[in-house]
Design a protein around this nucleic acid. Sequence first.
RNA 1: GGGGAAUUAACUCAGCUGGUAGAGUGUAUCCUUGACGUGGAUAAAGCCGUGGGUUCGAGUCCCUCAUUCCCCACCA
Length: 882
Amino acid sequence: METTLKKNYDPKTFEKKVYQDWMDKDLFKADPNSEKEPFCIVLPPPNITGQLHLGHALDQTLQDILARFKRMRGFETLWLPGTDHASIATEVKVVDKIRQEQGLSKKEIGRDKFLKEAWAWRDNYGRRIVDQMKQLGNSCDWSRERFTMDDGCNKAVKEFFVRLYEKDLIYRGNRIINWCPDCKTSLSDIEVEHEEKDGKFWHVNYPIKDEDLYIEIATTRPETILGDTAVAVHPEDERYKHLIGKTVILPLLNREIPIIADEYVDSEFGTGAVKITPSHDPNDFEVGIRHDLPQIRVMNDNASINENGGPYQGMDRYEARKKMVDDLEKLGLIVTVKERVHNVGQCYRCNTAVEPITSEQWFLHMDPLAKPAIDAVKNGDTKFVPERFSKIYFHWLENIRDWCISRQLWWGHRIPAYYCQDCGEMMVLREVPETCSQCKGSNIFQDEDVLDTWFSSALWPFSTLGWPDKTPELDYFYPTSVLVTGYDIIFFWVVRMAFSGLEACQDVPFRHVLVHGLVRDAEGRKMSKSLGNGVDPLQVIDEYGADALRFILIQGNSPGNDLRFHDERLEASRNFANKLWNATRFLLMNLDGDMPLLSEGEHKLTFEDRWILSRLQRVEQEITSNLDKFELGLGLQKVFDFTWNEYCDWYIEMSKTRLYSDNEGARYTAQAVLMEVLQNILKLLHPFMPFITEEIWQNLPGERGNIMVAPWPETKTDWINPEAEEEMGQLVQVIKSIRNIRADMNVPASKKAALMVLNARKELRDTLHKGTPYLMSLASVSGVSFPNTKEMVPEQAVSISFAGAELFIPLEELVDIEKEIQRLDKEKQKLQGEIKRVQGKLKNKGFVEKAPADLVEEEKQKKIKFEEMLKNVEKRMEELQQ
RNA sequence: GGGGAAUUAACUCAGCUGGUAGAGUGUAUCCUUGACGUGGAUAAAGCCGUGGGUUCGAGUCCCUCAUUCCCCACCA
């Protein structure tokens, strides 16, 4: 029969077409009114700032595999896609763009026009990244695509914010926060990355008022001296006890500040005396509150020194530092300068050193929210896979501090707080108020700030399903089934979704969290722009196909572990696709026309038919179990092995005998089994490699729907056939032994040789009899004979050590008796070793008594087998030596 | 200062609930057999990091140490 498949697998020729077909048929669409059991994944929305990278590819491939698997298994499957507005990142990009194109700063262009530009960016790049996701093969319900700043999300954000505010969980306050002088916004604690840097530790003498005494402090940030409002010592520190309550003259500014006692001070560290700068250090801030110290902020938003800095006003923080050290030096107040590595906090977006600063911000009170989130994982409502990540989750939630949720940015959800210009009243409301609730004035303005991006991301699992409205989607799909994400954003996102979901919906947002690792380059380095070692998934798809890309991201990777990206592995996975492609081609070329069906007509199944069908059932069972347990890498490995090693290398090869024969019945049966197994392979592989499996499926004869929505193979346990597996195992072993010896002796396949079988047990004799055609085709055997006596075996024959029969291959002129004896001797030693080990085991009383009975029995059988083989070898050696 | 991960064949990695180690790549030799050389056959190659423990039995469970890599933490 003709086949429409080309000789080589070329994904470019069909991937786009296949995807379009799925789209045209609306196969990704999920129905919230379905009778089926729901399965739901919300896609971690990629930022609209960037291109799709390999991290996305891994994350999304995992989700797609689960979605496709569950869909085939009969679940109503919703994979809900979308994109994230990525407040800071996008704002920075748009600011850049405006500066480059229009030469204007953010302030110059103004809020309204800026937002217009930002939305244009979103339309442009948001669409682009969605197109890229489709190339991966994602089976998302695109009709439900969302954006973290769309109207629905905005409504959810406002609702959630107001509710929290009304419960006193959100408050506004002047507290110390992390400030990025470059992005000019506050940051949450996790948006600050700490890096060890070489720095200096300046020891400075602070003069004590009215006395000829100094108190020595140490600091890594001398510029903050300008904001000092006290010096603190430990109350029990004998060195300083007498100074407590005295006054210090702050150098350079000559301000008078007190010496106070506070347990926070570690007497062992530094000089044991600490300068206290409540406005520029989180600890000092706390000390300041305890001791009612004034807060003096000495920096502007760009980290230059402000009017409180006296002579240093206007200088950049580092410039001021240098100048102040010089000045202190001149005054003779620098006692010593030590080298010191210390942690510097940096902005996670722009790497600028973050400045702790007191500022008026909005905060989310975390303690009451954290507790239910901890409990939900403790009692198993949400499970981490692998489990170890729950530890990280607990640790973080147990030590959490209040979350600064306001940002001094324009791109984001604007905080729904409104102020009356006339009386100063503040209102937190779902809708913009027309008049002041207090004075009825109409001069109302909204809070300038927006919310942290992660505040809206935290609502993603339910805002996308319609919350706060009671929608059928929310009712049916919430809690979602599994969240798939990298370990690097557990803090940013998973934790926040957990407590938000519990607060808003009274239930966890997801039942499982499947955590994966990072994709690294071949050297194990993180892929990054600055290193230029990033691999573009789109280019990979272009060259090798999406299926090959998906394959290497999954194969050999276990949950939670990082993986390295190697080009060579791409070739290997492409080769696998090619193998499957050609196996199909082979089958199609050998059909007689119709679709051969195993379920129709009379079939005389051979032992190899029963074997492959039996193996198929087992593999189906195993893969299904692997996928249920999120062991995707193991599952894929099994389809791979079964397809290549068992189906292609053995079954297809054996089928040729019948396919090329004139016996129509036998031919049809072989075709039917080949087809049956192939179709199931395609199904098992479909979640992993959706394009090629669909394309092949469509090219099989007969009317058929899409494999994407075909039912997942159901294991037919009555097809599991241990006898056939045993029989096949024996034949394979004989064939391999023959091949082995022939290769060893350098006998080319073209030189056929007879196989002589003596003293065979009945079953083996039957097997070898039935297997004769395969011995001939696969082991270059010219024929199999069963002589009655040893005399019929020529002297110059090699023997194959095997249990259950004596096997000989007469290879007269090729056999060197001396060498043959040597070979047998090696064999003998090997067998003796085996026997010794098995005997040792069986002599061990503990083993015989405590090990499972079937295992003991197995060992006994082994012993018998090895002993028989040994006997044969020894006998043969004797014969040859005579 | 805490927490975690990794350590298995030359390389990159699998190895589920403990029962004498697997894959891909690479290497060697052979094969143009009517699906595939993006192929087939055969082979070589591992005291499963160290030291202990539990067990009849440990790559697999527990502890020690070593090396590497992450994450978290307000020591000025």
